[in-house]
Simulated assay, not measured.
Amino acid sequence: MEASATKTAMVPPGNALALGFTGTLGNIDSYISAVNRLPMLTHEEEMSLARRLRDQNDLGAAQGMVLSHLRLVVSIARGYLGYGLPHADLIQEGNIGLMKAVKRFDPDQGVRLVSYAMHWIKAEMHEYILKNWRLVKVATTKAQRKLFFNLRSHKVGLDSMTPAQVDALALVLNVKREEVVEMETRLSGRDIALEAPTDDEDDKFAPIAYLSSDRNEPTNVLEALQYDRLQSEGLSQALGKLDDRSRRIVESRWLANDDGSGATLHELAKEFGVSAERIRQIEVVALKKMKGTLTAFE
């Protein structure tokens, strides 16, 4: 956290030094104390700096506007500490939003920078929280993101919400109760490590032990494709090279049912008016011929 705080506190020299802000603070508490001592701008000063930035691209004016509003970022970041993310990182992301706001601020719109900058500061913090709070994203659309933060602020305690609470919150947020239930389920979930703990206990299993699948392994995929090709094109070609009687015997004996329970030698012998031994001989010759065709087909 100290490294992040130092990075957050780094600002260009010049106006910052004149305001007593060294830019090389050692920890987050020192940084917060320093930015809270920076003087705030009057309305006239803010408008003057904003026009200098817009009309003359004066970076010194931009720096003055950013420095005077760093305390706003700290204040907003404090409201997001419940997500378990470093305070310094939240401030750093908020400072990025503040700089974007200063760059886009129009002094002729009739609003103060503090009102305009709040949107940009929160937007950067929200993006950071959604990317880092959970390995798997819990909110991907704009509506889901809004519901995510509203649900966190309205929900009381860690227990699951009752149906009445779900209905009441859905009414307050003007969303469907199914959406509230789904988002609460995402919030209550926890990330699980795929790897097992590094110990010598043999009775502990991690998800990676039973989630792995060889179905999409390249060798297995190629083998499956080859097998399907033999089952379709190869088998059809091999059967096509047999005479009608041999083909009838092979199909009746081996291809009539999936479980392999085909016709018996005696049943086929009766059908063709020959002995069962003759049927067996024809079958052996036919299968040998088919094997040669399939081998060449591969």
Rank of each mutant, 00 (worst) to 15 (best):
V136M: 11
L235S: 00
A286D: 01
D199Q: 09
L85A: 00
V175D: 03
L225Q: 14
G82E: 06
S68G: 10
S160M: 07
I282W: 04
A34M: 00
Y116W: 13
D167P: 01
G110H: 08
G20C: 08
Y227I: 13
I129T: 00
A18C: 10
F105Q: 07
W254T: 01
T185D: 05
F21L: 11
D167W: 00
T24A: 13
S261N: 15
S213R: 13
V74K: 00
A61V: 05
S75L: 11
P13L: 04
T24R: 13
L25P: 05
I32V: 15
G260N: 10
I282S: 00
Q109S: 14
A286V: 05
R152S: 10
A168D: 11
E46V: 06
L98V: 11
A193V: 06
K270R: 13
L98F: 06
Q237F: 10
A193S: 15
I279A: 04
R278K: 12
E277Q: 15
Q63D: 15
S236I: 08
D89W: 01
S232N: 11
T219C: 04
T22F: 06
A9F: 10
S115R: 00
T264R: 07
Q92D: 11
V102I: 10
G240I: 04
K288F: 05
Y227T: 14
D191W: 04
V114R: 11
V274E: 12
I28Q: 05
S48P: 03
H266F: 06
S212F: 09
I282V: 07
K291A: 04
L147T: 02
H126L: 01
R112H: 13
F149E: 02
L171P: 04
E93L: 02
M10K: 14
L230V: 02
D29M: 08
S30Q: 15
K7Q: 11
S275I: 06
L194W: 07
L222E: 15
K176Q: 15
I91H: 04
K241N: 08
H154F: 12
R248D: 15
L98K: 06
P207E: 00
F297L: 09
S261W: 02
E251Q: 12
V175T: 05
M40S: 12
V74Q: 09
R245Y: 06
V111Q: 06
G82P: 02
P163S: 01
R278F: 12
D58N: 10
T198C: 10
L230C: 03
A256G: 05
N220W: 04
S252R: 09
A123I: 08
S188Y: 00
H126M: 12
